[in-house]
Each structure stands twice: as structure tokens, then as C-alpha cells.
Nucleic acid binder design. Structure first.
Length: 600
RNA sequence: GCACCGUUGGUCCAGUGGUAGGACAUUAGCUUCCCAAGCUAAUAGCCCGGGUUCAAUUCCCGGACGGUGCACCA
């Protein structure tokens, strides 16, 4: 498949094209045309069915603009911020932090302020890797991959377009856990746009500035929850583990999900489970499994939040592209929002049996501490409390000594407090459970890249009756149209009228149907072939003459084989085919139409 | 961001210092009982800005967009 051919077809037939052409175009933005939008929506519906409905998860829809504080917490403000230095000699741009890391012991230069990196470049005489010119004295510029905006009028409140849909789920966790009635595990999904101000958008739909993600955040109790691995234990997968990627003669590991998890190739059973679910889903929507693999991230390429990560990759035009990521994010996101935000990002985990524990507490008599220590009284009380938890024996004497930082910048000092004033006691309390921070498993899908993959994998050419033909072998579930309806010829009003009626009936039955009576029948078949319409319904005279019920012919796209089906059965049969039914079954049940057409 | 190359009807291309031509597609009509058939007609284009010139789609400069490589990034 030549990529240029697919791009040409995509433009000509209305799958996708660069946006804003009338104004010169805008790099990184694509508009889905009528066919592409339908295909994309069907992919989203199939994803929703599998990852939301079949898993018993819940879908939400969060805003695309979020305030700066969210991204301070999530880490995107720092880690999506690249430090670039542009060589004055040759004009090439380089990651300033990477240059510094290469020649110093500093491991995380990204965290340093820009001025400091500039100094380090000068102090270490760092030269341009491209041309060798000195880089000292040049500005280090921040380039943040997030789109910035203002919320509200004037200077407003700084905000950003979300770089991933996930944060919209994480920030609402305190409420979402209520909807799950506090029970782990539960999963929240979201399908929607995300934005990254890419330095250099490339490759059609592959790297866009606005793109659609379908994400599932699976919240689990890492101690207790296990995935229903049996459901996908026997699913065959092609894995490309990190060890194989780094080996000289590294090879794929063809195995099953069950084995891969048992042998520890896939570290997390949860990640393994979703790899299995994804494998089945990709097959269902028409990804060519011979051009598909799961690749483990190398240690160095993992995102800032990911503990272990696998990508789903498809081969498109000779390149492997990432179409989904499966990350074990641990408690990174919820902990950060718990620390930065106001609400509690934990769930209460009830013990099987309430626990009775002895807890050392103090109840300091503030009417004594207040007059005695003035402004330091609160600090003294807090120190007593800490000490009680750490060393209850300290309260056995007449006085207790604790260390407090003096107010007004005084040095730390030791103070003695009457044990009686501290009011130390050991209480017996019943604990029914504890607050835990759930861990997150995140399958995150790129919808546009999936669409691109489906088109690339479905693009076929063959010969029909000696004429070359291009067609898209899209799965009926995702094809933009379910069927097309034609009168075989237009010089017979009966055929035209019945075709109109059949099309209307099929639409009323919920099918997406094209109607076309322009040009020869062969031309109309080819039009539908090119947009991947799986079935063409043709009304001919044989179907309306004679005594029996009205019939029409149904042509299957890939084989061009035809059967004759009663009009009354048509909607039901087409719906069955869309739901995954096999055309071969219909070939058995209905009369085959001889067409003399040969495909090869 | 850098370098090189490119940008002409819907699509793919040809061409020119005096504003353009083909193929396919599309539309209408004729024809037509199963795979891009035929006939007739019609619609439709020089990426944007500036410069040189009597005149620029063509030459020059800049920009936008696209492709490739580098860099960067999911």
C-alpha cells in the first residue's frame, strides 16, 4: 500500500483532510469528512461498547480547558516543558537539558531553571552537536507542549487545553468514587479531544495538535483487586518485550496473555488483562493482526507517571506507530492531586474484621500550655502528639521533653512539660478500615491513529472482470455506511420507486444507508467499494416480476458475490451482518445470483 | 525549529513573462438488466503577501501548507 494513494483516497472520498485550507491550512489539524467522521464515530462506539459497557464501567465528559493548578499537580507543567537552545551558527535546535546531562553528572537537568542551564552550558563549553559551534551565551527557551489560554476576561486565570483526557477523570475522583459508592475496583472512561502544541506535526493523522483519545482509568486496590484474567487467558498476542528490543537478535514473543502474565513478561496482571481485551477488540474492528504487536517501553522512554508501560503498535506504510498505551500509573496521579488539591483522593477500605488497636494519644491542657509558651503553644502540643505516636514510654516520667522550633526565627529548643499537662493516655480504639490511595491502570487509545490503521490495513486492490479496483475491506461494524441501495437501471420507474422505498425502510430500521442512481451499476459499486461499504443492495426486474415476494440482490464487497434476498428480510439480515454475522451463512440460506463476475 | 524539494479544476498531472490544457471524477440528457462502457453538453483551477516588469500562474524575496532527512515528541 502506498501511503500517497491512501491520502489521495481519503481526500477525494471524504475521510480526512488538512483543516482550514481556504486560509492556507493549519499544520497539525485535520477535519474528518463525512466518511471519516462516520468511521471514527463507529470506532468510538465499538470502543465504548467494549471498554465501557462490557466492562461495567462508567463514561464521563470533562471540560477540555483546565486551570493551571491541575497541571502543576499532574506534572505536565514541568515535564511537558522542553528547554530548547538554538545554535546561532547552523540554526539547529537541541534539548538544552539533554546536552547538559550528557557532559555533567546531572541526571534531571529538566528540573533546573533555564538560567542555570544556560550557565552550565557556558561553564562546560558545550558545543552544538550538529556543527560544533559554541553554545555559550545563547538563550535557553522554554517550549511547553500545552496550549495556554486565559480563563475569564482580562488577565484571567491561566489555563491549558488538556494534553490528555485522563486529568479530567483524576481531578473529579473525589466525586466519582461517590458514584461508585466507595467500592474498588471501578473504571471511568472518557472519549474526547486532547491537545498538544507539537513542535513539528507530521504524517497525516499520526501526530496532530488536536486529537481524540479514548481512555479508561481503572481504579484498583493494589493489595486486593485482581483482574478477571480468565476471560483473556487464552488470547494470542505478539509481544515485543524490552529485553528483546535491546538484544542483538531480538525477536517477537508469540504467546498467550495467561502465559505472559504467569512468566512475568507482563509485570502487572491488570495491564495483561487489558492487553488481552485490546487484542480482541482490535481484531474485532479489523486491525490486521500480522501488522500489530504490543511493545514494552524501555526504561528511558516511560512517561513521568508510568511504572510499567506497553504500547499497542500497528504497522502503517512500513512504520510502526503507537495506537494505544497501557500504563500502570500506580498512585502517582491521585497522590499528587491529594497533595495539591483540596479534596481527599482516597477511598475508605473496610477491614474484613474491625481491628482493635491501642493508640497512644495526648490531650494537652492548652489552658496551661498557652500562658506558658505563648505563640509556641500549638507547636508544643503538636510535638507532644508526634512523640506519643513514636515513643509512648517518654510519658512515663514526671515531665516530658520535646523539641520545638521557636517562633520568631529562634533556634530549636527543648522544652519540658508536666506529664500531667500532656494528658497522655493509651486508648483502645476500633478501626473499621483505612484510607488508601487507589492505583490506576490506564489503557489509553488514540482514536485517529486507530482510524488511520484501519484504513491502511483495509486498503486493497484487486481485479474485477479484468478492471483494477480499489476497495476498503472495513469491518461492517465500523464501515461508514452499512449498505448502499441502487435501482439496477433508471429507465424503469418501478425499480427506482422500490429502491427509494427499500432505502427508506432500511434507514427506518436504524441502518446507515447510501442511495445512488447515477451512472452505470458498475460505477456505483466501485464508489461504494472505495469507501468500504460492505453490502450493496440492487433492485432489479427479476426481483419484482413473477408471483413470489419482492426480492433484491445483495452484493458482498470483497468477493463481489451476490445473493437474492426478500425485501422483507433485508433489514434484519443486514443488521445481523453489521453485528458480526457471516455472509457465508447467507450464501447457504439464499439463492446465489450468477453474475459472471470474477475477482482475483 | 533547521535543511532540501514541492504547491496548477474535486483528484492526479502537463505547461507558459501576455491569466491555461489533459486524464479521471462530478452534474444534466440520451443509452443501459449486474461491476469505473458509449455519445452529447456543462461546472470547475494557477497557495498567500511583497518585489521586478507595460504585463507575474511563470522570475526574485518572505510566509503558509505538504513531503523527506535531522531534531523533538507520543
Amino acid at each position: 500500500m502506498a501511503d500517497a494513494d491512501l491520502v489521495e483516497l481519503a481526500k477525494r472520498r471524504g475521510f480526512f483532510f488538512g483543516s482550514n485550507g481556504a486560509y492556507g491550512g493549519t499544520a497539525g489539524f485535520y477535519t474528518f469528512g463525512p466518511q471519516g467522521a462516520a468511521l471514527k464515530r463507529n470506532v468510538e462506539d465499538a470502543w465504548r461498547d467494549r471498554f465501557t459497557l462490557q466492562e461495567g464501567n462508567r463514561e464521563i465528559e470533562a471540560p477540555t480547558v483546565m486551570p493551571e493548578a491541575v497541571f502543576e499537580a499532574s506534572g505536565h507543567l514541568d515535564t511537558f516543558d522542553d528547554m530548547l537552545v538554538e545554535c546561532a551558527e547552523c540554526g539547529s535546535s537541541h534539548r538544552a537539558d539533554h546536552l547538559v546531562e550528557a557532559v555533567t553528572d546531572i541526571e534531571d537537568a529538566e528540573a533546573l531553571p533555564g538560567e542555570e542551564v544556560e550557565e552550565l552550558i557556558a561553564d562546560n563549553d558545550i558545543a552544538c552537536p550538529t556543527c560544533g559551534a559554541e553554545l555559550a551565551g545563547l538563550d535557553v527557551e522554554d517550549f511547553n507542549l500545552m496550549f495556554a489560554t486565559d480563563i475569564g476576561p482580562g488577565d484571567g486565570q491561566p489555563g491549558y487545553l488538556r494534553p490528555e483526557t485522563a486529568q479530567g477523570i483524576f481531578v473529579e475522583f473525589p466525586r466519582l468514587k461517590e458514584y461508585a459508592r466507595g467500592n474498588l475496583p471501578f473504571g471511568i472512561t472518557q472519549i474526547g479531544p486532547a491537545y498538544r502544541n507539537e513542535i513539528s506535526p507530521r504524517g497525516g493523522l499520526l501526530r496532530l495538535r488536536e486529537f481524540t483519545q479514548a481512555e479508561l482509568e481503572q481504579f484498583i486496590d493494589p493489595e486486593a483487586d485482581e483482574p478477571p484474567l480468565d476471560r483473556v487467558r487464552d488470547v494470542d498476542v505478539r509481544l515485543y518485550p524490552a529485553t528483546e528490543q535491546q538484544a542483538e537478535d531480538g525477536d517477537y514473543l508469540d504467546t498467550t496473555i495467561g502465559e505472559a502474565v504467569e512468566e512475568g513478561v507482563i509485570g502487572s496482571p491488570w495491564v495483561g488483562y487489558y492487553l488481552g481485551v485490546a487484542q480482541e477488540w482490535y481484531e474485532r474492528i479489523g486491525v490486521d493482526t500480522n501488522r500489530f504487536r504490543f511493545r514494552q517501553h524501555l526504561a528511558g522512554e516511560r512517561a513521568h507517571y508510568a511504572a510499567d508501560c506497553w504500547d499497542a503498535e500497528s504497522e502503517v506504510d512500513g512504520d510502526w506507530i503507537e495506537i494505544a498505551g497501557f500504563a500502570y500509573r500506580g498512585d502517582y496521579d491521585l497522590s499528587k492531586h491529594d497533595a495539591y488539591g483540596d479534596d481527599s483522593f482516597t477511598v475508605f477500605k473496610r477491614y474484613d474484621e474491625p481491628k482493635t488497636v491501642e493508640r497512644a494519644t495526648v490531650d494537652p491542657d492548652m489552658s496551661v500550655l498557652g500562658p506558658e509558651f505563648g505563640g509556641d503553644a500549638a507547636a508544643v502540643a503538636e510535638a507532644l502528639e508526634t512523640l506519643a505516636g513514636r515513643d509512648p514510654d517518654a510519658f512515663e516520667g514526671d515531665t516530658v521533653t520535646v523539641e520545638v522550633d521557636g517562633s520568631g526565627g529562634d533556634d530549636a529548643r527543648e522544652v519540658a512539660v508536666d506529664a500531667e499537662v500532656a494528658n497522655f493516655s493509651v486508648e483502645t480504639v476500633t478501626e473499621n478500615g483505612e484510607h488508601i490511595t487507589p492505583h490506576v491502570v490506564e489503557p489509553s487509545f488514540g482514536v485517529g491513529r486507530t482510524v488511520q490503521t484501519l484504513l491502511a490495513h483495509a486498503y486493497e486492490t484487486d481485479e474485477v472482470d479484468g478492471e483494477e479496483r480499489t476497495y476498503l475491506s472495513l469491518a461492517p461494524e465500523v464501515a461508514p455506511r452499512d449498505a448502499a441501495v441502487f435501482p439496477l437501471v433508471t429507465n424503469d420507474d418501478r425499480l427506482v420507486a422500490l429502491a427509494d422505498r427499500v432505502a427508506a425502510d432500511l434507514r427506518a430500521a436504524g441502518l446507515a444507508v447510501a442511495h445512488d442512481d447515477s451512472g452505470s451499476i458498475g460505477r456505483r459499486y466501485r464508489r461504494q467499494d472505495e469507501v468500504g461499504t460492505p453490502f450493496c443492495v440492487t433492485v432489479d426486474r427479476d426481483g419484482i416480476e413473477g408471483d413470489g415476494p419482492e426480492t433484491v440482490t445483495v452484493r458482498e464487497r470483497d468477493s463481489a458475490a451476490q445473493i437474492r434476498v426478500p425485501v422483507d428480510d433485508l433489514a434484519e439480515e443486514l443488521a445481523g451482518l453489521r453485528a458480526g454475522g457471516s455472509f457465508d451463512d447467507l450464501l447457504d440460506r439464499y439463492e446465489t445470483v450468477e453474475t459472471d463476475v470474477e475477482t482475483e
